[in-house]
Design a protein around this nucleic acid. Structure first.
Lengths: 319, 319
DNA sequence: CTGAAAGCGCTAACAT
DNA sequence: ATGTTAGCGCTTTCAG
């Protein structure tokens, strides 16, 4: 691999001049041309590792998501990539698999690799951000907030979403709408359930809402289990709000297996179902602005990287 | 950020010894303990950028896929990640979006970042691999081969898959099975179509197969367009083999809109449909070993990184 | 087994 | 505006 020294020699200038040409610093046009010609001839590409070591920063941002197979997150990733590319940054995508350990490992990598910043969908309430923040690497949380740390966050109005989903089902004539939400202790799960509960209690003053609230794991299996549980209630619901896309799939599977029609048991899903082939399944879908969440997070991060100071922002996306 | 010098000073040893401790080189256990204690106290993490510059290699491999929103590729990515993690490598995922330019840019990054290797689902017939290969960075192609370059490849037996999909539909009683395949000039598209055509011509000696072959773009929109075209034929097919998952969704959408039942128009899909909620849609699904493709590619790449020489391997995964 | 010292390729003072 | 030079933090000969 050629280095700036070889390019410099071939172009008859100093290494510093070569560096300047490649960094947009003003240089005598003659020299610049010679440098570019020499670089082309030698097929020179600046060594980013060296540059990074020297500059102590790089044009790479990390995006850590909890499940790369969930279209909500891949769509979010597209949003981040769009903005980052425009700004000349590369995005490296990391899958924490909802594991705190993997998340921590990736955050260490971000740190050790001198990345410019990180956009994180936290796998837990307490991601290990201290090191990074201490070092001055900016971080932005998306979809889920990080209570303990002063980081920017881009969030959804989950309570409203939960309420809307519930309203839609009642509006369609269902009489008893249950809820399948995410894991205990998960912010989005709690908020979406709260939205549901507000509507539910308004309509069923005498019924304990907890009987109609199930917690799943935000995965297909959790949706199956929760749906099964709801169906075995003495007075089963005639409709259900499911707090994310994967669990909706699980719930639908159960209904299909038992040949329960959309009219018998209504369903609303928070978030797009991939490949909306489900029209005839009669599921009420509440789309979520996943991609916009990504672009907003990227904008926030890029601003911080550019030196923006000021108190942590908290952006709530309209739904 | 602390450096090995500070750790060395605190531990009362030389920087070289600290380096050795962190690299598993044998060191006096006393020293090693002191170094580890000092490192812990200072919260030292080795600077990977410096290490990489010095070693001229890193424990990062790139995976370049053409569409991060396609579950086939995310599943493949999981396979790669699994193996890579086990071997102590990080995976950075890049989305070429089927664009030759973006692919080339990412390949440049792989080169400039001194990555250990790259696994590539080529967006074109001629990915710009020369630089990388010239530099000795190993590359493995997955799902699509790279005719011009001597790189390892992990492929599917697409012709067999196409044939099987077709057979299944005829076996279910359909009489005239059409095919929607991928873009012209795409290897997998051509091969899957060839499999279909072999079956088709065997059964319809007098019919020009080209009339029942449509080319789409491997995306939802392409599936829609192709399905629409097939339905407007004078003698429309009564079933269709669709060469990938996304186009199947597009094709299904058309059928749903026109209220055409699975019995009226049968369908087979190459590759899993995400969230198999489609049971009642009657689609014959031919699962593809996406994840296994990823692990196989990772194994091949890791072997090359470890110094394996020898002629390029060509692995065809069983279906 | 350990330490001293020379770079990896680049950038950014500083000096010209 | 350009060149000289000193590192960025680490690994790795080479001596001891």
């Amino acid at each position: 691999m050629p280095t700036i020294y070889e390019v410099a020699r071939l172009a008859g200038v100093s290494p510093a001049t070569v560096s300047r040409v490649f960094n947009g610093v003003s240089v005598n046009p003659d020299y610049a041309d010679r440098v570019r010609a020499a670089a082309a001839e030698l097929r020179f590409t600046p060594n980013r590792t060296a540059r990074r070591l020297r500059r102590r920063s790089s044009e790479v941002i990390a995006l850590i998501i909890p499940d790369i197979e969930n279209p909500f997150f891949t769509s979010l990733a597209r949003g981040v990539e769009d903005r980052a590319q425009q700004a000349g940054y590369s995005v490296v995508l990391c899958d924490s698999d909802e594991h705190h350990d993997k998340e921590a490992t990736y955050l260490d990598v971000v740190h050790a690799e001198h990345m410019a910043g990180v956009i994180l969908v936290p796998a837990t309430d307490h991601p290990q951000l201290d090191r990074l923040l201490g070092q001055g690497t900016p971080a932005v949380a998306v979809d889920r907030s990080v209570p303990g740390h002063p980081v920017d966050a881009v969030l959804l109005d989950n309570e409203t979403i939960g309420r809307q989903a519930t309203e839609r089902l009642y509006a369609r004539g269902f009489r008893r709408v249950a809820c399948i939400t995410g894991p205990h202790g998960t912010e989005t799960a709690q908020q979406r359930a709260a939205g549901w509960q507000a509507e539910f209690t308004r309509r069923h003053r005498r019924v304990d809402p907890d009987r109609y609230l199930e917690h799943g794991d935000y995965r297909v299996g959790g949706g199956r289990a929760a749906m099964t549980a709801l169906l075995s209630l003495r007075t089963p619901p005639d409709a259900v709000v499911v707090a994310n896309n994967s669990m909706t799939v699980g719930a639908l599977e159960v209904l299909q297996e038992r040949d329960i029609s959309p009219a018998e048991l209504g369903m609303a899903c928070v978030g797009d179902l991939p490949y909306s082939v489900l029209q005839r399944s009669g599921v009420e879908v509440l789309p979520l602005p996943a991609r916009a969440l990504g672009t907003a997070a990227a904008d926030l991060l890029l601003a911080r990287i550019a030196g923006e100071t000021g108190p942590p922002q908290r952006v709530v996306m309209p739904v």
